[in-house]
Amino acid sequence: MSDQREVAIVRWPGQAPFAQDGPAELLAAYHLQTQAEKGEACAGVDELPDRYRVEITDPHAVFADDVVLLALSGDTAVGCVVVTARVDGPSEVKRLWTDPEFRGRGIASRLVRAALAQAAESGVSLVRLSVWKWRAAAIALYERLGFTVTESWDERDGLVCMERAV
């Protein structure tokens, strides 16, 4: 088993040519878990709502204008995060996921810090995110990294909206 020193954070697809599927498997796990937590469990990717399924089947197209960061242990993607590219206005951090076997090693923190650095490099001054209210560990992580709860911009019940200056 790898430790956190052996996990590299890279931009996909550019710095991870061998990880052609990139975040697909991680996104599948993320969306299937989220649907189950919402009480809308799916038996597989084919049952996911179209807007989520396409992220898994064609991440190149869906995230073409965004930055996808992967945490790699060797040639294996063990974590991911997406940073939306905004010309004017805040960037958004979304789809943060770490393979359950690799949790507790600081990978999610490293991914979020890399996302914040990416946003800063693009000249963005504010990063926001939304997280389901039952994901207490994720909310605590975001708070440790300087995010604060803000007024919701999303109409879905159960979401906590957060933001942080960069």
Rank of each mutant, 00 (worst) to 15 (best):
M1A: 13
M1I: 09
E6G: 15
V10D: 01
V10I: 04
R11T: 12
R11C: 08
P13I: 07
Q15V: 00
A16N: 07
D21H: 11
P23D: 01
A24S: 15
A24H: 02
A24L: 01
A24M: 01
A29V: 00
A29N: 03
H31I: 01
L32E: 05
A36Q: 05
K38N: 03
G39N: 01
A41F: 01
G44Q: 11
E47T: 09
E47F: 09
E47A: 15
Y52N: 06
D58S: 14
D58C: 10
P59C: 09
P59T: 12
V62I: 15
F63D: 12
D65M: 05
V68C: 14
L69P: 04
L70V: 03
A71C: 06
A77Q: 03
C80L: 05
V81R: 07
V81G: 06
D88I: 12
P90R: 11
R95K: 12
R95T: 09
D99A: 08
D99Q: 04
E101D: 15
F102V: 07
F102K: 10
R103G: 01
G106E: 12
S109A: 15
R110W: 09
L111S: 02
V112N: 13
R113C: 05
A114C: 04
A115T: 07
L116M: 15
L126D: 10
V127T: 13
V127C: 12
R128T: 12
L129T: 14
V131M: 06
W134G: 00
A137F: 09
A140E: 11
R144V: 11
V149C: 05
E151L: 02
R156T: 14
R156F: 06
D157R: 03
D157A: 11
G158I: 01
G158Q: 00
L159W: 01
L159K: 10
M162E: 11
E163D: 15
V166P: 02
